[in-house]
Each structure stands twice: as structure tokens, then as C-alpha cells.
Design a protein around this nucleic acid. Sequence first.
DNA 1: CTAAAAACGTTGCATATGCAACAGAAAAAA
DNA 2: TTTTTTCTGTTGCATATGCAACGTTTTTAG
Lengths: 205, 205
Amino acid sequence: MDVSEIIENISCNCIKMQRKNFNKGSIITTYIEKRKQICILLSGKADLIRYDLNGNKDIIESFVAHDIFGEAFYPVHTNHELFVMAMDKCEVLLFSYDDIHEKCKNNCKFHATLVSSLLELVLEQIIHQNTRIEILSKRTIRDKLLTYFSILSSKSFNKNITLPMSLTSLADYLSVDRSAMTRELKYLVDEGFISRNGSNIKLLY
Amino acid sequence: MDVSEIIENISCNCIKMQRKNFNKGSIITTYIEKRKQICILLSGKADLIRYDLNGNKDIIESFVAHDIFGEAFYPVHTNHELFVMAMDKCEVLLFSYDDIHEKCKNNCKFHATLVSSLLELVLEQIIHQNTRIEILSKRTIRDKLLTYFSILSSKSFNKNITLPMSLTSLADYLSVDRSAMTRELKYLVDEGFISRNGSNIKLLY
DNA sequence: CTAAAAACGTTGCATATGCAACAGAAAAAA
DNA sequence: TTTTTTCTGTTGCATATGCAACGTTTTTAG
């Protein structure tokens, strides 16, 4: 079962699922006091955001269709306020992990397959996170960029890649200063590691 | 069902599971060509290791009992060699995600509960990773340390914390230079943010 | 179309941090 | 025990990078 089938089977009466629509800019959920909530983004784009102690906005994660998120994925003692904001018109499936985890009274087929497809979605999520960790654990902007590029490149089997986000967002994703990143991009071009035309980048190594 | 129950029920005949023992220093698995492998560490300690292009050893993750790992959690196009090495005597459960994911022919109870408890293990894993990402995305050593400390502190509800690993390992976990980290620790003491006695640290803020 | 907002490219400067090297302390192995 | 290995604390130095500031270009909204 894939996500679309989950939606079709939403009628299952042992699990309380909500399907909601959100307009751009509205809050889909906050990570406060809904410990077991899980959300699946059916369509649209949404960001997991925090304002840190200095008041700076951090985009912690960006979600697209079929991504899974929710307070269930965060430690109990999350000391700063996290919330997910719709960056576009969004359609979201919301439910509680408790409902999934408890044994289904009706032993319904839907329940079992839902758990199974959830597991699959979550595995996807882990892969994303491992990728992110791999990049973030590089110590220089250069290494972060090159690692990011080579992951993009190996995904598409192509030395020519197109950045899927703005440079501003990329800097945020890599957790580096935007201007420092631009500078490093220039160096990479100057030293012949890459060529670049806007967001089209060619790996020359 | 928790992990120990999984082990007891290993007799399930629809899923091929192996239970193996490893001595300190031996390779538990490599992340090459076993795309769907999942491992559960039943006891012991193990590290996910890579030698990067410069020949430097990277400890990407450290696993303890009940942690879950395997190539299934990594992107298909992992261009560097990853392997898991036992850091102690280890007991490991190995199986393939394919076996889990395919519909069980016998519709056995074990299969369903295994998927369910796997989901739980994987959720734990995601929480760990989110924590790691939160720390790694801080831009200074100071912020990484303080974030790490405050997470430790909120877990134990105590301003006095004991580092659960050596400073050398911590520097690796935070992806920073060890000597630079020691220096920053000293600054934090000097400026009155923390007091420290070996690996016992008291948060003064 | 026009106005507003966001993204981009650039630069000077201060400093945080990686790196190398070393010696002493602590822990592990023999 | 003794020996060996790992961990720790420190420092000098070069440089990578955050930060602030600015004008220009591109995108979005009205």
C-alpha cells in the first residue's frame, strides 16, 4: 500500500485520522503537548521552523508530498518551540501514533497495512536524515558543498545537476552563512572544481 | 512486543532471521550490496565507520543495545565504503527488510507484531537523528556544546551532567576539532557558563 | 503593469576554528 | 606489576567563515 491507498482507506474505523487543508502561511501543527502526533503531507510544501533564543528563524526541515513529520519524531524534552508552517496550499493527514501502535480491536486488514506502509515512509525519512547528517558533519563549507553535489549527482547519474532550491535555502540546509557559501562557490569555480550557470552546476572532477 | 520478545519469537518461519555473535574488532556488516539489510544490536557496542577520501577514519554513528542499523537506512548511491565494527562483544539480529515488507503468507501473528515493534525502534532512531541534526546545525563549537549539554540536562532533569563518552568521541560526535573543543570548554568555564571536573559538568545558566 | 519582497553577488573585517605538535595523565593490555 | 595505548590539555599559526553592509537582479504580489 502506498500513501494514496492510505488516503482511500481512511474510512477505517479503528484509527482516527483527520485529513485537513491548510492555506499558505498557516500553522499545520505545533510540537507542543501532542507527543504522539504523526502527520503525512499529501500535497504542498511545509517547513519545520523554530525561532531560537536570539530570535533568529531556523528552518529545521522542509517537507514535500509524502514526507512524514510530527512531534512523535522529536524528543520529549524539546525546549524550544517548534512548529510546521504551510509554504503552499497543503493537504495533510493527521493521526496519533498511539492509535497505530495499539493492537487493532477489529484486526482489520487496513491497520496492518498502514503500519507496514508507515514503516516504509519512516525508512525513507531515515535515509534523508542520514544524508543530511553526512553533509552537516563535514567541517568546511567546501566539503559540505561537494558532498551535497555528489549526492545530487549520483542520484541522477549525471555530472550536470540543478539545485532544487535557492542558494539562500541551500545555505540554511548546510547550516552555513549564505555569503560565505557564495564566496566558496566562486572559489570552486575559479579552481576548476565546478562550472556554474545560475543553479545549474557541472561537476568537473 | 519489545526487542527481547522479538528474539524469543525468532522461530517464525516466514522471516529468515540470523542471530550472530561478534568479537571485538570484527566486522558486523558492510554497507555494500546488501541493500535491504536491517540489523538490531542486542548487546554490546558497535560503530558505523568510514574511511574518507583522505584516509581519515570517521565514526558516523555509535550503536548500543537495541539500536537499529543497516544498509536499508542508507541511500542507494553511497559512494564511500561504510562498515559496522564491533567495539565489544556483540550479539546481533540480522534480517532483510524485504522479508518484513512482503505480505506474510502465513498471516502469522509474529509478523504483524514484528513490523509494529520495528516501527517503534525506527521512531527511536529518528528521534536520535533529529537530536544529532539539531546539534550539528549549530554554527559554532560553543553552540554545539551548549545545545548538547542542555539536551543531556533536560533528559536527566539535572543541571549536573556526566558526559557519557570521552572528549575525543564527543568532538567526533559534534564534528569539530578536539583541541578546539577543549579550548572552547575552557572559555565556557572562564566565562562562567559551566563548571567542570573531568567529565562532570555543571550548567550555571 | 507596477510595487514590494526576496534572492543574489560582493567585500572588508574580526575571530572562531582547524591543524600540527608536544608532553603529561589515564586507561587498557600484557 | 610493567608496558603500551589512548586520552587529555595546551599553544602558535594560518585561514576559513560568520557578520554587516550595500547595490543589483529576480521573483512574487497587488
